[in-house]
Design a protein around this nucleic acid. Sequence first.
RNA 1: GCCGCCAUGGCGGAAUUGGUAGACGCGCUAGACUCAAAAUCUAGUGAAGGCAACUUCGUAACGGUUCGACUCCGUUUGGCGGUACCA
Length: 823
Amino acid sequence: MKYNFTEIEQKWQKFWDENKTFAAAEDYSKPKYYVLDFFPYPSSEGLHVGHPEGYTATDIIARYKRMKGFNVLHPMGWDAFGLPAEQYAIKTGIHPRITTQKSIDNFKRQLKSIGLSFDWDREVATIDPKYYKWTQWIFMQLYNKGLAYQAEIAVNWCPELGTVLANEEVPEQIEKGYTVVRRPMKQWMLKITEYAERLLIDLDMLDWPESTKEMQRNWIGRSEGAKVTFKIKNPSQAGAEMEDLGGVLTLEIFTTRPDTLWGATYMVLAPEHPFVDKITTAEHKTAVDIYKENAKHKSDLERQALEKDKSGVFTGAYAINPVNNEEVPIWISDYVLMGYGTGAIMAVPGHDERDWEFASKFHIPIVEVVKPAGTLTSDITKEAFTEEGVAVNSGFITGLKTEKAKKKVIEWLEANSLGKGTVQYKLRDWLFSRQRFWGEPFPVIHLEDGTVKLVPEEDLPVMLPEVDNYKTIGTGESPLAGIPEWLNTTDKETGLPAKRETNTMPQWAGSCWYYLRFLDPFNEEEFVSKEKEKYWMPVNLYLGGAEHAVLHLLYARFWHKVLFDLGYVSTREPFVRLYHQGMILGEDSNKMSKSRGNVVNPDEVINGYGADSLRLFEMFLGPLSASKPWSTNGIEGVYRFLNRIWRLIIDENGNVNSAIKDVKPEGDTERIMHRTIKNVTDDIEDMDMKFNTCVSELMIYMNEISKLEVIPRENIIVLVKLLAPFAPHLAEELWHRLGGNTGTITYESWPEYDASKIEKSVITIVGQVNGKIRVRLDVENDLEEAKLLETVKNDEKMKTYLDGKQIIKEIVVKNKLVNIVVK
RNA sequence: GCCGCCAUGGCGGAAUUGGUAGACGCGCUAGACUCAAAAUCUAGUGAAGGCAACUUCGUAACGGUUCGACUCCGUUUGGCGGUACCA
C-alpha cells in the first residue's frame, strides 16, 4: 500500500478540527506553555514558503510540549487593519472588510493545510468591533494616565498614501518609493518617552537575540551629558526685535562633553529654532531668512540624502561662554536638528567631527582642549580628536581625565546655576494618528469650545461607519470627516453638540496587545480576566522575523508596561523569550518576490509532496535562524524519507510489517534508540532550535532500524512518537495503524531515554604522532589512561613512527585519543 | 562611516564547544531489477598522487597561541543585517 499523503493529511486535519484536539484547557493545575507567532497581516497574495518556516517551528514546540505534559496555548489571529486593503478599496471601491475577510479565509485555509496545531477557537481579528472595543479602551487608559495628547508638530507626511507616518515607519515607506515631507499638523501622540528608561533597562532581563536588544537600545538612544545655559550678548548692532526683549536672553544647549566647554568656538541653532528670528541682526537677516526658507522646503529625505557637506549662515549674534566669558558667534545650520536635545549646540570643532568640518569650511578657530592619554597622538589641524583623554587649556579642569572633568564641570555648572547634568534620549513620542479610514476610531469627541473628551466607556466600541468613499478628503483629513451623520454627535454629559475625532489609530495599535486577548477572547466585561492573565502570561516563546525589532516589539512592550502600572497585567515584560527565524530565499538565492518570479507557493508543494514533507523540509533546510535558499530538488529527500518510514511500518497490503515483533530492543538496537531520543530531545530543547539536526537524527535512526530483520515494536513506537511534532499527519496515521487506541498521538507521552544505555562497550580512539593521526584503534569504553597509552604505543603501526625517536610528551584523553610528541 | 553577525565539498548544511573535519540530505558515478524508463535497492563520492595498502594537502587569506585549531587571538578580504549629521 502506497503512502497516500493527501488522504492521510485531509483525514487527520478533519479529525483535529472536529475533536478540537488543540484547544487549550482552562486547567490551571497543569504547567502552562504559551507559544506565539508574530501576528500576521493577511495579505491578498497568501503565503509563500517562507511563512511556514516559523509556523512549523512553533508548531513543533507546541506539539512537543503537549507530549511533555504542558497545557499549551498556541493561538492564531489577524492583524487585519492595514494600508493595502484600503489602497485597494480606493482603486476599486470594494470595502476593505470584504477583501480583508477574503484574505483571512485564504490564509486560514493555507495554515490549516500545513497541519498547524492552533487553537482556532481563540482566533481574533483586530478589525472585529468586539476586538477594537478593547483597543479603544486601552487608549482611554493611556489618555487618563496623561500618556496620550494632541500636538501641532512637524509630521512625516506621505502625499501618495495621504497620511502621516511614525518615525519608525519612514525608512520602510521610502524604500517602497514613496516620498515623505515635513509638514505641521495636529496629531495624537503617545508619551513613550516617559518609559524610555524602563524600556531600556528591562531589556537586560529578556532572553532575546542580542542584535534585537542592541537595536532597541540604539533606537532609545540614551546619552548622558549636561544642559548648559549660554547668555546671548546684547550687541549694539542687534536688530530692533532684540531691543524689545528687555531682559537677558539665554540659550540652552545639550552636550555629552561638558568637559570641552573651553573649546566651544561657535554655537549652532537649528534653522527652526524659535530664537533665530530674535537674535539675528539686521545685517544678516536676509541671508538667514533665505537659509531658513531653503531648510523648510528640504524634506527629511533630502536632508539625509544630501552630501554631508556642511552649510550654514552667521546670525550676527554672539553668546557668552559661561566658563571663560568669551564671545562666540551664533550660526544656524541644518546639521543641528530641532527634534533632539534643545535644537541648539555649542560647537567644539577640535573634538567633534561635524563641528570640525563646519569650522574648517567657514574658517572658525579650532581650539584643542583634550589631549590623548597614553601613546595615542592627535593633530586637530588635520581632524577632530573625539576620544576621551586629558583636559588641556581648560581652566579648573586642566589635567583631569575626561570622565572626571565632565563630573567636575557639571558640579560647577549646577553650583552656579548655569546648567545641570541630564540624560537625553533619541526616542521621540510616538505619533499615533493616521488620516485613514481603515483603522480603529479614537474614542474621542471635540466640543465646539475646543474641549476634548473621551466617549463614555459604555458607548464603546466607537464603530467605523459604512462609507462609499475611501479617499482622503481635502487637505489630508480622513474620509471619516466626510460623513456628517457619523461625524456629528452630542456630548452625553452636557448635551452639547460635538464632533468625533476623525483620525484613526495606526496598524500597530491592534498588535500591541493581541497576545493578551488570546487568553480570554470572548470576555465582554474585561479585555482579559485577571485570573487568566495570571495563569498564561508571560509568553514563553515568541517567534517571528527580525524586521519588527524596533517597531511592534517596542510599542507592545510600552503598552504592556502601562497596563502593568495600572495593575491590569502581572508581568513587567510580555515576551520573555524571542526568536527570529531566518528568511527563506528563492532558488536563485534572492529574496522571494513576484517581480523576480522566484516565489514558491506552499499549496503547490503540499499538492506534490504533502504537508508533512513541506514541514520536514522547511526544518531540514538549515538552522532556523539562518537565511537559506529554497530547493525544489531537496524536498525529494525528505519525501523519500517519509516514504521509507511508511514502507518500514506498512506492507503492500496495508498491514503492519510482519518484521515488527513484540521483542525487547537489545544491544545496538536499544542503544541507538536511547541515543536518538536523547539527541532529538536535546535539539528541540536547545535554545538555538536546531530542528535540522533533529530531522537528520530521525533519518539516521530509521536507516539503522530498517536494516534489522526483526524490528522490536518499541523501536517503531519511539520513531513514530519522535516524528509526531515534525510530521504529525503521518505520525497520527501510523500510530492509529499500530493500534494506538487513544484516538490521537497528540497527548501521548514523549519517550524517555536512559543515559547509561547510550554508551558503547567498544569505541574507536585515535593514535597521533606529533598531532597527526596515524592509527585508529578499537578499545573498550572507559579504558583507563595508562592502559590506553600502552595499547596505542604497542600498536605495530605506531611503532614504525616512534622507533628511534625521542618521546618528549604523551597526551592521553580518555575515550578520545593518544598523542605522542617525538623528536 | 559606525554597530552587529557570518564565511566548511558541485549544493543545503553537521562537528559532543580545543581532541577522528565533511554527519544527514541533494546532486553525481557505477551496479541490481526492467524489453526500456521511472520508482526502488546496493556501492562509491573533498582535492591531488598511486594497481594497491597508503601518502600529501584541505574549513575565505595571512600570521599567532597550543601536544593538538573549523573552533581561541590578531590582521586582511568578501558577504548579510541594522543605522546614519542624535551634539
